[in-house]
Design a protein around this nucleic acid. Sequence first.
DNA 1: CAGGATCCTAGGGGATACTG
DNA 2: CAGTATCCCCTAGGATCCTG
Lengths: 133, 133
Amino acid sequence: MVTKQLRGATARPIKKDDADLARADSLAREIFADIANKWALLIVETLGDDTLRFTELRDGIEGISHKMLTQNLRLLERNGLVERTVHPTVPPRVEYTLTEPGRGLRATVDAMCDWTHRHLGAIESARHRFDGV
Amino acid sequence: MVTKQLRGATARPIKKDDADLARADSLAREIFADIANKWALLIVETLGDDTLRFTELRDGIEGISHKMLTQNLRLLERNGLVERTVHPTVPPRVEYTLTEPGRGLRATVDAMCDWTHRHLGAIESARHRFDGV
DNA sequence: CAGGATCCTAGGGGATACTG
DNA sequence: CAGTATCCCCTAGGATCCTG
């Protein structure tokens, strides 16, 4: 589970503490569900250190639909990972960038991508082995 | 995108190289899609250093259905992240454990979980701000 | 106990059209 | 250009039953 094993750490479990832990738990699960999804992670990864417009993001992420992009951007914005700046020009110009916490998450996503690339070969052969049987 | 920016690195892009890069790309995307999903990541995280039976995993991951568990376990097995050992006893005993590459991925998932827990507060207030408006 | 196979529904997610 | 709303289809995924 997402929960870190620090349950038994407190001297004597008081009721209120348990309730707090439970709340933190379900919150963590909720956040994890928001974040641990293909599109959200790809958006974070694509944004990187840049400031990108809606269309630039859309073009940068192959296969993402208009709808999924807006939807996930709202989610990320709501969780404070992405900052959205609207320039009141015409036509409108909306820019997205990672917030400080967002960049923190990005580091871990980077690690995941690195991992993927380092294991491309191993995974490919594992697949062949599996499919062959 | 998952693709690392090493496209322009080669001296002169020869056709074959491009084709290879494209293949690696789509493979990376495929793997990423397999892995960057809530259940797969939770399974990896839950397995950790342990060797768990099907039912233990099922009980350890709150909210996962029988079907989703088997489905994702097969996927992880196919990609060589999880090893499945069947003990031909009766009733059967099937154990799952992370492979070496699987443990590598686990490290990055751990980082993601850590990140989540460190930012619980920040995210919660970001949400209130967002929802309040 | 592990896990296929089947059925069936909710909602994820695409395409399109409309506003500011 | 960015974003919302509508329609609609298709599949992810839950519940259930059946085998070794």
